[in-house]
Amino acid sequence: MSEEVAPHTHFQYADARHQAETALSGMWLFLASEVLFFGGLIVAWTFCRHWQPAGFDAGSRETVLWIGTVNLFLLISSSFVYSSGLAFMEAGNAKRLIQCCVATMAIGSLFLLLKFYEWHIDISEHLFPAGPFKINGADAGGARMFWSFYFVATALHAAHMIVGVGLVGWIALQARRGAFADGWLTPVEVIGLYWSFVDIVWIVLYPIIYLVGRE
């Protein structure tokens, strides 16, 4: 085995395809790990709603439905745009990939802006679970638990989004430098997996935050 097999191949791999499949598999394994990470949150949601259905749903009714729904639309579309970018790059069109990356980042940032605005609304309506709280009476306990869940879940998702926007930006930069000109697309695919996964997380969070508790 020679020292460097191909320009992008690390010395422990037989060839570029070997390395590419390894990287993809590694990302999938990381995503499996992430499934369990958010899985813990879903257990918390199921458990708490099981004991306090009325309070939990009373909390859920206070969420800003339109922002959640618009954000769902944005994320679905961003995954689509990024995936199209990958398809363009597979056909050798780096310029289109860069455009798609920029569009993905723009949609992602819009998502985050809306999310920040939503938090602003929530907090100004005294929906942050600590301190004075909007809901009183029998449902207050369950509602506070819902809003604890809400803030942890959305903050984690937003953190993943911020990382994702950065990673997509990095792909755009690499593409501009011509890094993918020789058909080596592993980073584009790997980051795409991550971005779509963050999308899936929102797809699952959306109904349990905004829809299930409504009447």
Partner: peptide
Amino acid sequence: MYPKQQIVASYEPIMPSFA
């Protein structure tokens, strides 16, 4: 403590919580 969890049949859920 949590009167709304188990409502006795044919009564309204009006009792406040004493939690």
